[in-house]
Amino acid sequence: MGYHWNWSVFLQPTAAGDGSYLGWLLTGLQWTVSLSLAAWLIALASGTLVGVLRTVPNRWLAGLATAWVELFRNIPLLVQLFIWYFVLPELLPQRLGDAYKQSDPLVQQFLAAMVCLGLFTSARVAEQVRAGIGSLPPGQKNAGLALGLTLPQTYRHVMLPMAFRLILPPLTSEFLNIFKNSAVATTIGLIELSRQAQQLVDYTAQPYEAFIAVTLLYVLINLTVMILMRRLEHRVRVPGFVGGGQ
């Protein structure tokens, strides 16, 4: 289709005069990775807490946790992002809101995207934690309580360690998803990997090279995550338990 291939485009100095186009891609990679990791920490911490709360005997706490999951799971990610970025600062008191909006836009974009992705994923993590706990034989909880452990201690020392081993494979998928979902941050202007690809297209008019390079970088990120998670699975396995008894 008459396309003019030019793979050396990555080594050319940028039209904006700040390094090479390869440098742009690497900056984009940095933002994607740091955004995803930060959001993952939020997702894991709040998702675990909410997932545990969904299984506790207290009806109020369980109800609250259910509401959390339904809220963050049922609103489209893009809508959530726009609410965090565009709507929330308008709800702050005027002077505080204005000061926030005049601050470094990169920080605003990163914060909004991090909180949004983190909470969105927390709902999904919570469901998996709940499923993991639910799939344990009821005897484990009873045994813990019979030993004289309190309920929180039973969760901490008996149920969660087993539940987490059970849900490691689906958690890996969520971890992979967060990297892919991080591309939504491009809609509020965060210059992450997929935005850099678009910028490259705008500046160089070489769309295929740019998108192929970015695709490879996403594959690379996800392969790394998969390998690391598989190692972790291997390392923490309990002989005689799921996948551990060979």
Partner: peptide, 24 residues
């Protein structure tokens, strides 16, 4: 994003060290 203005303002920012924050 993706316009000539984006390119011009980023370049101006680099060339004249204006310390603008450019939102795309």
């Amino acid at each position: 994003a993706g316009t000539t203005s984006e390119r011009l303002i980023r370049k101006m920012n680099e060339d004249r060290q204006m310390k603008m924050n450019v939102i795309s």
